[in-house]
C-alpha cells in the first residue's frame, strides 16, 4: 500500500508543468495537498492557444451548429478574459473566474461595437480579433513563466 501511494506521489511530481518549481517545494506541496508558491501551470496558456485555433477552425470550415455552438460560446464567454486576467495573477480562483467572464463579455461587446461603428461588421472577424487578444495574452504568460520576462511569486489560495 505504501509503495502504491509513493508511486502516486511520484507520478504527481513527474508532471512536466511542475518542472519549473524546485522539487523540494513540490514535494512539500504534495505532502500538504497544496500547490507550491510560485508554481504556475503551463497548461492553461497552451489551452488558450489551442482552443482559439479550434474555434477559429470551426468557423472557417463552417462546422455545423451542433458541433461548434457550445465550444464557440464557451470560448467567447470565458477565454479572452481568462487569458488576460491570468497576467495579473489573482490569488483566488473564484475571483479569477468571475473577473474573467466579465472581462470576456466586456471585450466581446467592445469588439462587436467597434466593428459595428466602423461598418466592418463580420462575426467571424469579431471572433478572430478576440482569439488574437487571448492568444497574445497567453503568449505573454507563457513567455513570462519560461523566464523570458520578470517572474513574480504567485501563491494561490483557495476561495
Amino acid at each position: 500500500m505504501v509503495e502504491i501511494a509513493e508511486r502516486a506521489v511520484d507520478r504527481r511530481l513527474a508532471r512536466p508543468d511542475r518542472e519549473s518549481v524546485p522539487p523540494e517545494a513540490v514535494r512539500a506541496a504534495a505532502a500538504t495537498g497544496r500547490r507550491a508558491a510560485g508554481q504556475r501551470l503551463a497548461r492553461p496558456p497552451l489551452l488558450v492557444l489551442l482552443s482559439g485555433a479550434i474555434v477559429l477552425g470551426f468557423v472557417l470550415f463552417d462546422a455545423p451548429a451542433a458541433v461548434r455552438a457550445v465550444p464557440v460560446l464557451t470560448y467567447l464567454a470565458v477565454v479572452p478574459g481568462l487569458a488576460c486576467v491570468r497576467l495579473v495573477r489573482l490569488r483566488d480562483r473564484l475571483t479569477e473566474l468571475i473577473v474573467a467572464v466579465a472581462l470576456s463579455l466586456a471585450l466581446g461587446i467592445l469588439v462587436a461595437e467597434v466593428l459595428l461603428q466602423l461598418g466592418w461588421w463580420s462575426p467571424a472577424w469579431g471572433l478572430a480579433v478576440l482569439v488574437v487578444i487571448a492568444s497574445l495574452a497567453a503568449s505573454v504568460e507563457l513567455g513570462r513563466d519560461r523566464g523570458w520576462t520578470v517572474r513574480l511569486p504567485s501563491p494561490r489560495r483557495r476561495w
Binding site: 468557423v59 463552417d62 455552438a69 464557440v72 460560446l73 467567447l76 467571424a124 469579431g126 471572433l127
Partner: peptide, 11 residues
C-alpha cells in the same frame, strides 16, 4: 452586437 456576433459565429 455581442449576441449577434456570438450566435452567428456559433452557427
Amino acid at each position: 452586437a455581442l449576441v449577434a456576433m456570438a450566435t452567428r459565429a456559433a452557427g
